[in-house]
């Protein structure tokens, strides 16, 4: 517990100036903003009551000798207009680390999003949602490279957004609490994401719609623990930046984006990230 407090303090010390600047910049944007959820993060949107959504997402991560292609299947359901549930099933198509490759089911996650605040104005919405998730150890932890962490982990977060006919902005903060398993405890993670978006053409319903986004995703990982000791080559801070696009028609959305690390401070000897890309199709019914 004492170790955790120290970690949190250390995180804030390194990220607080960046976060302060980012939130200030976002907060000073004009009132006309939005569209839909960011591609690399989570927005405050909940689906309509009784509504279903399915999404297939292809993700490719490139980090030195490590390359991973994953298909994420997501099922979304709106229990009420304020509460939606998402089940995320990752299927690792190919994970490579040096000469070793592996594929198979990853860790399944169940996520709930509850809308704490909503303010509607003409053509715009302001929202704040709480995020709660649980990740199950369904991926093979003994595979090389590992497909799962072997731990049951928990996600807590808060997301705020302003959507309008022309602009949008999001700010999301998530804490990923990871538990220990067989003496090994992967480090907790803090995700801090900020997104701004612009719709160049104010399209009407039943017309195709395009929104361009600029997403900044921060990822701070605490050091892992093995047998009560901190693993030296673990943990660090990475900030990603890149463009994304949302293309939709009625209840179908195609989205994709690419991000490059603009800041990396990884502890010890670790593979540095090169880029990551996502392409997804979402359907609501």
């Amino acid at each position: 517990m004492i170790q955790r407090v120290t970690n949190v303090e250390r995180f804030y010390r390194s990220c607080l100036p960046v976060l302060t600047v980012v939130f200030f910049v976002i907060g000073s944007f004009p009132k006309q903003v939005f569209a839909h959820e960011p591609v690399f993060s989570i927005g405050p949107e909940t689906i309509f009551e009784g509504g279903w959504g399915i999404e297939t997402e292809f993700e490719f991560d490139d980090a030195g000798d490590g390359k991973t292609s994953t298909l994420h299947y997501e099922i979304l359901y709106g229990l009420t207009k304020d509460l939606s549930l998402t089940l995320e099933i990752p299927q690792v198509l190919r994970s490579r680390e040096g000469h070793m490759t592996e594929d198979g089911l990853g860790d399944i996650m169940l996520r709930g999003k509850y809308q704490l605040f909503r303010r509607d104005t003409l053509g715009a919405q302001d929202k704040i949602s709480a995020i709660l998730g649980i990740k199950f150890p369904t991926g093979d932890e003994d595979a090389k490279p590992r497909l799962g962490t072997g731990t049951t982990d928990f996600l807590f977060g808060l997301s705020a957004g302003h959507e309008s006919r022309t602009w949008y902005r999001f700010a999301t903060l998530r804490y990923f609490l990871r538990t220990k398993h067989d003496g090994f405890g992967p480090g907790d993670k803090i995700f801090y994401d900020v997104t701004i978006g612009y719709r160049p053409w104010r399209r009407e319903y039943l017309q195709w719609d395009l929104v361009g986004l600029l997403e900044m995703s921060g990822e701070y990982e605490f050091g892992s623990e093995l047998g009560g000791k901190t693993v030296r080559n673990s943990g660090g801070n990475t900030i990603w930046l890149g463009p994304s696009l949302l293309f939709s028609y009625r209840n179908i959305m195609v989205k994709g984006g690419i991000q490059m690390p603009v800041y990396q401070q990884l502890k010890g000897n670790q593979e540095h990230n090169d880029f990551r890309t996502v392409f997804a199709i979402e359907y609501h019914f």
Partner: peptide, 29 residues
Amino acid sequence: DGLACPFCAYGLEKKIKELEGYKSFEVFL
């Protein structure tokens, strides 16, 4: 109020279509 994007308006179409008196739906965002 709150109609920000065409993709979001689908939920409104679906809910309006569930109304007993529904005959047609048109939206001007």
